Amino acid sequence: MTKQNGYVFTGGPGAGKTSVITALQQSGYPVVPESGRQIIQEQMAGGGQALPWVDKVLFRDRMLSTALQDFESVTAGDRPVFFDRGIPDLVGYSRLEQLPVPAALLQYAVQLRYNQRVFIFPPWEEIYQGDTERRQDYATAVATYEAMTAAYTASGYELLVVPKTNIAGRVTFILERL
């Protein structure tokens, strides 16, 4: 199943994906927010175990469940929908964290397709910031970028590197390539 109108933003943490997706949402475009941060907030509030620093497999599996729901919730059409991460991100995360990659996850990554063009945000040390949910250091952000590049390439996507410029410039770059 392919969602030609579904455009994924991927890359390492702290590279500006969420800022750009927020700008697109404020311009009227439908967006699907990143599930990882929401899951972390919910788990921390409820004393849960699905946290990347407690149980990486449970965290990944919770993100997969949400990613599948998000994928199914988007209807096909001409209007672009922007995803802050996609299913192949979970393959990249698994490999980055040296977790086993379930066969079902590999199958979802290949069979549940977004638009062929995926926007990848490169590491950008000048804007990188950690916080309560983002506990990775900059070196991990770089490694995550490399893992996402490998995961999306292996899943057969064309990666478009989003330039390091202001949010408006990044939005223009993306919209000109839809």
Results as ranks from 00 to 15, higher is better:
Lys17Glu: 05
Val142Glu: 02
Leu178Cys: 01
Arg95Leu: 14
Val20Pro: 04
Arg117Pro: 12
Phe59Tyr: 13
Arg60Gly: 03
Asp137Lys: 01
Gly6Asp: 02
Ala103Ser: 11
Gly14His: 10
Glu146Ala: 09
Pro102Ser: 09
Gln69Leu: 14
Gly46Gln: 15
Arg135His: 12
Thr165Glu: 06
Phe71Gly: 12
Lys17Met: 07
Pro13Gln: 14
Met63Glu: 14
Val110Phe: 12
Leu160Tyr: 10
Val142Arg: 01
Gly16His: 04
Arg60Ile: 03
Gly169Phe: 00
Arg134Thr: 02
Leu106Glu: 15
Asp70Met: 04
Thr75Glu: 09
Ala154Met: 06
Ala23Pro: 15
Leu99Gln: 01
Gly169Val: 01
Thr144Met: 09
Ile87Ser: 02
Ala45Asn: 11
Gly47Met: 13
Thr22Tyr: 10
Ile21Asn: 03
Arg177Phe: 01
Ser94Gly: 12
Leu64Ile: 10
Pro88Gly: 00
Gly14Cys: 00
Gly48Trp: 12
Asp70Gln: 11
Ala151Met: 02
Thr2Gln: 15
Gln49Leu: 13
Glu42Gly: 11
Ala141Asn: 08
Gln26Ser: 14
Glu126Trp: 12
Ala143Met: 05
Leu96Ala: 03
Gly11Val: 03
Gln49Met: 06
Ala103Leu: 11
Thr153Gly: 00
Arg37Tyr: 04
Thr18Val: 00
Ala151Lys: 02
Ala154Arg: 00
Glu97Gly: 07
Asn5Ala: 09
Glu158Asp: 10
Tyr7Asp: 03
Ala151Trp: 05
Arg170Leu: 07
Leu112Arg: 08
Pro100Trp: 04
Trp124Thr: 00
Thr140Gly: 08
Gly48Leu: 09
Val57Asp: 08
Met44Asn: 04
Gly46Asp: 13
Arg134Glu: 04
Val161Met: 02
Thr18Lys: 05
Thr144Ser: 15
Pro30Tyr: 04
Gln111Tyr: 06
Thr10Met: 02
Leu178Pro: 00
Leu58Phe: 11
Val8Asn: 09
Pro163Glu: 08
